[in-house]
Amino acid sequence: MESLLEFIRIDMGSPGLATLVSNPKFAFIQLLNSVSMGMNFFIIAAGLSLIFGVLKVINFAHGAFYMFGAYIAYSVTETMGLSFFWGVIGSAVGLVLLSVVIERSLFRFVYDKEHLMQLLLTFALVLILGDVAKIIWGTDQYSVSYPASLSGATNLGIAYYPSYRLLLCILGPVIFLALWLFIERTRWGRITKAATQNREMLAALGINVPIIYTGVFVAGSALAGIGGALASPFNSPTPGMDAIIIVECFVIVIIGGLGSLWGTFVGALIYGFVFNFGSVIVPNGQDIFAFLILLVVLLIRPWGLFGRPETEGQ
C-alpha cells in the first residue's frame, strides 16, 4: 500500500485549475472519480428515467427503493453472512417483489390521473417506506464491507485506483448497453418503446399494456435496488439516504432528458465531471456547476439534452 501513496502523492499543496492542467496524474484520478461517480448515479437514475419514459410517472419513491436496496444488501451480507454478489442479487429480488406489490396495488390506479395526484402518491410512499425501513432496520447506521477481492486498489500504470470504483466504471456502461440492446433490438423492447409513444394504440393492437407497465416499473425499481446495493460499501445504509440520492438523480435526468436512456447516461457523466472537476477548481462550491448546468438546460432546452418536447396528444 505504500507505493499507492507514492503514486498519488504529488506534493501539489492546495490544488486548483492549474494543478489539473499541469499534473496529468491528478487530472487522470479526477477523471476516474468523475466516471465512477457518474456510473453509480446512472445505475440508479436509469430506473427513474425508464419509469417516467413509459409510465409518465415522476416517482419520488425511487430514492426509497435505492435505500431498500442498500439495506437488503446489508442484511444479506452482514446478517446472513452471504457474499456481496448475493447481496446485490437479494436487493434486486427484494425490489422486484416490493415493486410488483406497489405497482399492482397503487400505481396502476393513477396512470391516467393528473401529475399532482401521482406526485402525492409517490410522496406518500416515500414517508411510508421510510417508516417501514425504520421498523425493519431501526435507526442505526450500518457498514457493508467491500467484496474481499475488490477492497484494495488496482495499478493502472499512471496511478492506483480503488478496484471497487473501477468495477462501477465498467458496470455502468454494461448496464447501459444491456438496456439499450433490450429496448432497440428485442421485440419486447420495441413494444416498451411503443408504450412511451401511444399506449391506446398499443392496446388496440392486442398488446397487454398493464403487463408492460408492471414490467417497466419492476425493472426500474430493481435498478434502484441494484444501485443501492452497489453503493452500500461506500455509502452506509442509514435512514434518510433516500432523500439525498433522489435530488441528485433528478438533476441528472432533467439535464439528460426525462425518459431518455442516452440522456440519463450522458447526464450522469456530466454530473460526475462537473462535481469532481468543479470541486477541485472551486473547492467549497461543489454543487455550483451541476446546478448551473441544470439551470441553463431548463432555460434553453427544458426537455433535456436528449429528451423530446412533449407534444399535444402525448
Binding site: 498519488i8 502523492r9 501539489m12 494543478t19 484520478i29 472519480n33 461517480m37 473547492p283 461543489q286
Partner: peptide, 10 residues
C-alpha cells in the same frame, strides 16, 4: 473521492 485525492496529493 474528490476530497480524498486532494488530501493525498497535498
Amino acid at each position: 473521492n474528490v476530497f480524498i485525492t486532494q488530501i493525498m496529493g497535498a
